[in-house]
Computed example of a mutant assay.
Amino acid sequence: MDLTFKQITEVTADDYELLLDADPYKGIVDEYITRSTVFEVFNVDKLVGIVALLPTRPHTLEIVNIAVAKEQQNLGIGTQILKKMIFAAKTAGYSTLEIGTGSNSYQQLHLYQKLGFRMSWIDKDFFTKNYPKKIIEEFLTFNGFVLKDMVRLTMELKKS
Rank of each mutant, 00 (worst) to 15 (best):
I122E: 05
F127S: 13
K124I: 03
L18A: 06
S120D: 11
L19K: 07
K159M: 08
Q73G: 01
R118L: 13
L153W: 03
K134G: 00
T128G: 09
G144E: 04
M155I: 01
F139L: 10
S160L: 12
Y106T: 09
K26T: 03
K124W: 02
P132M: 10
V44A: 14
L115G: 08
D149A: 08
I63G: 04
T91F: 14
A88Y: 01
V146M: 07
P24Q: 05
V11C: 13
S120F: 02
L54Y: 00
I136G: 09
F139S: 13
S103D: 13
P132W: 06
M1K: 12
P55I: 02
F39T: 02
K6G: 00
S105C: 06
D30H: 11
M155R: 04
I86H: 03
K158C: 03
V29A: 05
H59K: 15
K70P: 03
T60W: 10
R118W: 00
H59G: 01
S103M: 09
V11D: 10
E156F: 06
D123Y: 10
T9D: 13
H110R: 15
K84Y: 01
Y112V: 07
T12W: 11
A67C: 02
I81N: 07
L97D: 05
M85C: 06
K134E: 15
I99A: 09
D149Q: 05
I77L: 12
K159E: 10
K70L: 14
Q72S: 14
D30K: 14
R118Q: 13
Q72R: 09
R118T: 01
K133T: 00
I122N: 06
Y16L: 06
E62P: 01
E138G: 09
D45S: 12
T37D: 11
I28D: 03
N143F: 06
V68F: 12
A92G: 02
T9H: 14
R118I: 02
L47F: 06
F139K: 14
M85Y: 00
G78R: 07
S160R: 10
L109C: 05
D30E: 15
F87M: 04
S120K: 14
D30M: 13
L147N: 01
K83V: 04
P24I: 00
D149M: 09
I50C: 13
L19F: 07
K133A: 07
T12Y: 12
R57H: 15
I86A: 01
V38C: 11
D125P: 07
Y16V: 04
